[in-house]
Simulated scan of single mutants.
Amino acid sequence: MIGNDLVPSSLTNSPDMEFCDDLLVEIFSRLPFESLARFKCVSRSWRALISGGYLRRRLPLLAAGLFVHVPRDGDSAGGGGEPRYATACAGGGGLEFCDMSFFPLVETARVVDACEGLLLYRSVESASELFVASPATRRWAALPVPRREAQLPLLAFDPASGSPPHYHVVCFVAWQERGATVDVFSSASGAWAERDAAFGVDASSLSPTTHYRGGVLHVLAYPDRVVLMDLATAMAPCRLAPRLPEDIDAGARLGHSRGLLHYAKCDGERLRVWALDSSSSSPGSSCQWILTNTVRVNDVIINGGRWPVTEVKFLAFHPDIADVVYLSSPAGEVASCDLRKKEIVSSWKLGAEHHIVRFWLLSFSSGLMNCLGVASNL
């Protein structure tokens, strides 16, 4: 079942063994990835099953990570509240808040960013003291103090970038006319490095909307550009992606699906998605944005009837299925939607009191196990 290098052949051919492993896979596929991290310690056979390629090939489901604001007692939804990290199975199920008691500074530091299962904290007493914590592995690390005060710190982490994967922290320390001086921390080197980033656009046009993939930080810049900052290559210049097909607004998001960069624009009632097509091999040809889907919320169906939602917020792209995206409603419902079929694939209820700040998906097949291995960098 899981390979002759892990168990004797007499067992891999046993029907009882096959049923046992299939049952475990079904159970594992419905667990948040914090539980998978803990269950690796149950036994050698469980560790081999969770860490091996067998499980990754058998699990089509995703683990969803959410960073939400939870109102304090007596507060209305979206007012005040505290930021909390939670996980849920993207195929449905409830919300499980993570216990951050392993991080001793949780009461004296606040979260300033979150990315793909990692949290970036900054001390409330000193803006230069930064910490990265992994709720999945219950590990944390204090970053070296940068030479200059950290401004606008961003966390960049791609769990599919390697084994073990590395993360970066980017701090903008001085603004220039069409760029900035940035300090970049790499967990691979354990040190900060100064870089001059020439954006190719006015620095004031940069938006807070970012996306990190394959060592490149993508930043939306008003009115219609995407700045590409290569963090994996030292001193690499910034680049500009082709102009976006429509101007950026509050509902605009970037993401990757099936290896292609996608751009989504959602006004609440209508969602449009473009993919950056680089398949042309003709001499002199360039990448271009191709419209792939246009969907109105009132056209979406669920269980054979109309989805009783009039407004949505775009959350994320499915990493492996280009037509599937994740949306949220004002009532606190999160749903995966097949845009081509205009149909809700699955959904689960968070509650209107939970305001989603960050949302990400970890594919079991191409990211989850590496994310569990990030403890070696903390």
Rank of each mutant, 00 (worst) to 15 (best):
L23G: 09
A188H: 13
A174I: 05
W192L: 04
G80C: 10
L240H: 07
G268F: 00
A352Y: 09
P32T: 07
F314R: 00
S280L: 08
H355T: 15
L315S: 03
A236Y: 00
A221K: 00
Q176P: 14
D22T: 13
S128G: 08
F317Q: 06
T108E: 13
L271Y: 01
R258Q: 15
S363W: 05
L61Q: 12
P32W: 05
E311N: 10
S207D: 07
A250S: 14
R72I: 09
L61C: 12
H256T: 14
S161K: 01
I356D: 00
I27P: 00
G91F: 01
G52Q: 05
G80M: 05
D267A: 06
M1H: 15
V42W: 06
G255L: 03
H218S: 03
V184K: 02
F39W: 04
L260N: 11
S10D: 13
D113K: 03
S76C: 12
Y222L: 10
V112Y: 04
V124G: 09
G215N: 04
S376T: 06
A77M: 03
V309E: 11
L6W: 14
R122L: 05
L66W: 03
A236V: 09
S205T: 13
L244H: 00
R56S: 09
P83C: 15
L23P: 03
S186P: 15
D320L: 14
H318I: 14
E82D: 13
F185R: 00
E149V: 12
A136N: 04
F67M: 12
S187W: 00
L271M: 03
A198H: 10
P242Y: 08
S365L: 12
L261R: 06
G3N: 02
A142I: 09
S45N: 07
W140A: 05
P146R: 01
M17H: 12
V170P: 04
C41Y: 06
T137P: 01
F97C: 07
T87V: 11
L231W: 01
E26P: 09
A63V: 06
V325W: 04
